[in-house]
């Protein structure tokens, strides 16, 4: 079975020549990957990043932007590696929402 990321030769529309300046949060996602995958930290391998991107369901994969896939995959890998827990993440996300509502972000 063809995996959805393996799209070479598939039918698709015209190439829309889009580009944008990467937003700071996108660059920080990239930076997280660079740092977490370096020799010293070694918390994620590039091929783990790719595998966990491929594991995103086809609908979500095609809806997400590039760095949305990346942060999703980085998070999955850190969970798999035991570098993070779902509980820590849930509490942190709640904290971020609270700070955002309070205008502190």
């Amino acid at each position: 079975m063809r995996q959805h990321h393996d799209m070479g030769g598939e039918k698709a529309g015209p190439v829309e020549k889009t580009e944008h300046d990467y937003a700071p949060w996108e660059k920080r996602v990239d930076a997280l990957m660079v740092l977490l995958s370096d020799r010293e930290r070694s918390l994620i391998k590039v091929d783990e990043l790719r595998r966990n991107i491929e594991a995103i369901g086809p609908d979500a994969y095609h809806k997400m932007t590039y760095y949305e896939r990346w942060i999703t995959s980085i998070t999955s890998t850190l969970l798999q590696r035991g570098a993070l827990t779902s509980d820590e993440l849930a509490r942190k996300l709640a904290d971020i929402e609270r700070r955002e509502t309070a205008g502190l972000l």
């Binding site: 920080r28 997280l32 932007t65 998070t75 570098a83 996300l93 972000l105």
Partner: peptide, 19 residues
């Protein structure tokens, strides 16, 4: 959601002393 996720992962990694 994904912007929050980026903040969350980054802050947790910082708190854990990873980066």
């Amino acid at each position: 959601y994904h912007q929050r996720l980026e903040i969350a992962v980054r802050e947790l990694m910082i708190e854990k002393g990873v980066l």
